[in-house]
Design a protein around this nucleic acid. Structure first.
Lengths: 348, 348
DNA sequence: TTGAAAGCGCTAACAA
DNA sequence: TTGTTAGCGCTTTCAA
């Protein structure tokens, strides 16, 4: 690659100062039209591409936001990303996606990325946070939390009513006559895991059904957890006719374990997931699951971020509206993975 | 966020010059041990985090590589990414993943990202390239091509024998007695699409079977293409007992279309995919497919990139070994989506 | 082995 | 509306 021309070359070619070139490029409105044309022609002619590294460095802004998620391989986050990217693009921001993997070191790494000026802020979709960093609140970069809640971290949040969503899913199974329902939970030391479990309990309680703690299997949203915990249950000879998994991935994992034992879905065991990822509709049988408006959630989170950043920059225009938490509605999508409870095939 | 301390603060605290701090951080071997300790203590004490923006700007290196793929939502690329990331991490590089979506504008955008000094090089996993850019070869950033071939672009390449892989897959179907085999192709104006089709033709020819052009359905690797083209075929009342899809995603799409018509896999129609993504093993029935060593391919591509970059930087150490193309072996993974041809259930 | 000093390409006061 | 100028934080000669 040959040496790039710089802003001085453009200035020379256009017969203006470097400041004018800079302005013409960044704030075309602040430059006379004739000048703008001269600059643009020069840019075109010599093939100038601004060195963003330099401009970020100088202006101390990267116009980039990092979306930090639990597990980048969960397709759930792809739609979130798309929503974030839409809102970001419209406002001139770029988005980078980071994989936290529930690992404090990786999280710290991303926080440092902001300190190193790679990004202006963070959208967090993780359930815990390194204790070390929680203490230094004044050195934390701007962030927004989406769909999660982090103990000890006050932040503008995009929410969903997980208790109600889980309760609805389990109530659906109960309405189909199921009584012994397994719950494959999320991480139980975190908000998402706790609230969905709470919804599960509430649905059973409301229906006057007993809660068998042996049917509550701790997981972490991953495919493998779904498989392992279901296999364990089957090995123990547990009795159940339905499973409510806290993620589609876990539901799919559970399905594998069931099939290995020759159990059919939904004939022997009914199955409900959470998230309505692409895989839920592709799966055979198509999975009943809880839909969350991912795209909108992503957009809302980024919108919050933008407001937060402009407040940070001292821009008064955007601060009028306070950074209030926002709540979205979930919806139970019923497909073919749930069948009425059948006395002749009472599950396992 | 409070103001970050800078290198001068560290220098002051350690009682050395800024140049020494810079050296201590970047090339610890070039600094006396006692000095190194003084610097490190000062760094620790005042909580210094180097401003990467500044150092990249100054050194004109970002230690970042962009992995540009066809479609970020295809899980195939996740493992490639992991391989790239492994090799990159070991060499102190970071990896960003970009989504080309077969869109010249997006591709140009990523090329510019390198010119803007966001990244040092590109690993391309795309099948075409903006014509405009092809002409200015001397201004193109360092790149490596993986698994694809781009007309008009000479580049070190990581390959797989697509003809042989496709031929093997189709030969497997033929060995099971299938004679009328659909091929859902990749983009036919690109290397990947052409070579796999070539393998399909070759297998039929070798077996002495006729090639029915009506069974060759052009696609683009996407789920929707698999669905649409299969649905079209079924609507036309085409006869076939097996499908060879050029990607797992297309195979899954085809399966949906078949099921909607009440056709069972593999009882009525056998199905073979390509890539062996996670979904192939999770799918019901588990999908017979062509495995490519994605992780290794990613690692190899990044290794090439690193060598290319250090050659660029004039580092003579790494140039000994020439940048030769590298080839990896594929493997047919047989699962349960293929059954022997059954006269009683001759497909569609 | 270390320090002094120049300057990377750009932006942002300030002045004109 | 435009130009002049200082300097962001760091790396990198060059000299000591």
């Amino acid at each position: 690659m040959v040496d790039q021309p710089n802003i001085r070359d453009v200035a020379k070619a256009a017969g203006v100062s470097t400041a004018t070139v800079s302005r013409a490029l960044a704030q075309p409105g602040k430059v006379r039209e004739a000048t703008l044309k001269k600059v643009m022609d020069a840019v075109e002619k010599i093939g100038f591409v601004p060195n963003r590294q330099a401009s970020m460095f100088r202006s101390r802004k990267s116009n980039t936001v990092i979306l930090l998620v639990r597990d980048i391989s969960n397709p759930f986050y792809l739609d979130i990303y798309k929503g974030v990217e839409e809102a970001a693009f419209a406002a001139g921001y770029k988005v980078l996606m980071g994989d936290a993997r529930e690992d404090d070191e990786r999280i710290t790494h991303y926080i440092e990325a902001v300190r190193e000026c790679h990004a202006d802020g963070l959208i967090l979709m993780i359930g815990s946070f390194p204790k070390k960093l929680l203490e230094q609140t004044d050195r934390l970069p701007p962030f927004v939390v989406a769909l999660e809640e982090i103990d000890g971290l006050e932040a503008p949040t995009v929410r969903v009513d997980n208790v109600a969503a889980a309760e609805g899913a389990v109530a659906h199974l109960i309405a189909q006559g199921h009584k012994r329902i397994v719950h494959l939970t999320g991480p139980l030391d975190e908000h998402l895991g706790k609230t969905r479990l709470e919804g599960y309990r509430r649905a059973l309680k409301k229906a006057g059904l007993p809660i068998d703690e042996a049917l509550i299997m701790p997981g972490d949203f991953s495919l493998n957890a779904g498989y392992d915990q279901t296999a364990k249950l089957l090995e123990k000879g547990a009795h159940f006719s339905a499973i409510f998994a806290s993620s589609d991935q876990m539901a799919i994992g559970a399905a594998s374990a069931l099939r290995e034992k020759g159990l059919a879905i939904p004939d022997d065991v009914s199955l409900v997931g959470f998230d309505d990822t692409l895989i839920a509709s592709i799966f055979y049988p198509p999975l009943t699951t809880v839909y969350q408006p991912r795209r909108e959630i992503g957009r809302a989170a980024m919108a919050m971020m933008i407001r937060k950043l402009s407040a940070h920059a001292g821009d008064p225009v955007a601060v009028e509206e306070p950074l209030e938490d926002q709540q979205f509605l979930t919806e139970l999508i019923t497909r073919n993975s749930v069948a009425p409870f059948d006395d002749a095939r009472p599950g396992t």
